[in-house]
Design a protein around this nucleic acid. Sequence first.
DNA 1: CAACATTTGTTGAACATTCATTCAATATGG
DNA 2: CCATATTGAATGAATGTTCAACAAATGTTG
Lengths: 227, 227
Amino acid sequence: MLETVTPMKTEASDALSETAQKTEAEKRGRKASKEVRQLQLIEATIDSLAKRGYAETTMADVADGAGLSRGIVNFHFESKEKLLIATLQHMYDEYSAHWRTALQKAGDDPARQLQYLVWADFDRSICNKRKLAAWLAFWGEAKSRPIYQALSSSRDNHYQQVFINLCTTLKQSGGYAYEPQAIALALSAMLEGLWLRLMMGTEDTTRETALQAANAFLAAAFPKHYG
Amino acid sequence: MLETVTPMKTEASDALSETAQKTEAEKRGRKASKEVRQLQLIEATIDSLAKRGYAETTMADVADGAGLSRGIVNFHFESKEKLLIATLQHMYDEYSAHWRTALQKAGDDPARQLQYLVWADFDRSICNKRKLAAWLAFWGEAKSRPIYQALSSSRDNHYQQVFINLCTTLKQSGGYAYEPQAIALALSAMLEGLWLRLMMGTEDTTRETALQAANAFLAAAFPKHYG
DNA sequence: CAACATTTGTTGAACATTCATTCAATATGG
DNA sequence: CCATATTGAATGAATGTTCAACAAATGTTG
């Protein structure tokens, strides 16, 4: 159902973190290109955030997770704070590219576009325990750190505007009564809330049930388009 | 609109933290009853979580915020971890009592009950920057701390079951087509997502617009009952 | 191609700082 | 005067950062 939506570079980085370092990344102690090493450290940071949370994520844990020595992070990133910002930026870019690709693949039909955006949100490459946990770790610190604030909401202004536009179009073609802004806000908030459930719910909420809930919303809000 | 829904003990604790310590709580250095002092420290903890985030919340900051000395927290609570657990438990109890009270005040009509539950979520005593920030701070750490997991989701199993029951009843009386479980999940997830927006959104999402979005959802999902 | 030099990446120990916890001394209320 | 609450300095552990030494790649020269 979702296969056609899935992109892109995330496959490489995910595989790298799941199966330790492959042969493609040079083994421990050997040199690797700057970008590869930085990505490796960023992936190790996401691992640590997911496993230990923001407060317990240490430079030593990141270095150990990457199979490298203690001082290496301060060489590639100047400080712990800059490592975390780079990690957040990486996740933001990935999410952003992901929904834009999904939107592009949907074609011209607004109903189809909205459906694809919702599907994209629950795609395995984006929506897995590890990355959701990392997102939540950043969200928990965003309010007190202005630097995080802009990046920490993966669904940014642009994303929200696309939702509003789609809801406006659907309202006209379907003759619905609601305010597009309000429905768009309800919809994107629900998607974020479902993400929250997916990580905190013990097991009662799965990607499937979350997707069902999102589709139930679409069917209720746009009965002429999704029935 | 919401006045009749608002309870309860939260007024006292909120006022206490907002206007420093009043005369009701004994002044610095003087003795106070165990419960008062513990509540005072818990409120100071919420303040610190909201202002500095989980990672930067220190015992010293909590003690300073309460206007007391450094060692005091380890006297009333055994450790930092137990202080944080007590704080989370306090917020959980408060939220739980709040929605139960709202449900009780709604009377017997299911549609009215659901409306009151939604209103309760955006009541000022519960839904303010300070407490939302504290919630989010705990959420960010919940995945890596089993102790938090049970308490960190303010909307617990009981809450969710009430939603499911209400959606089931409304479905029968309104002749709707959807799956009650899915709609209930969509609804409660949206409420949580709106909370998220309220703290992270720079200012574009207010309590009013969030409530409008929630009501738009109700109107779309239950057109016969809210319209 | 070999020998050397230079740049760049990497290591791990040392350092300084922050912070939770402990506890003996002191203050307070009953 | 006794039990209890409170203080604030001391302690020890954890952790981010620095840096001198080392290793590997790259460049240079004969």
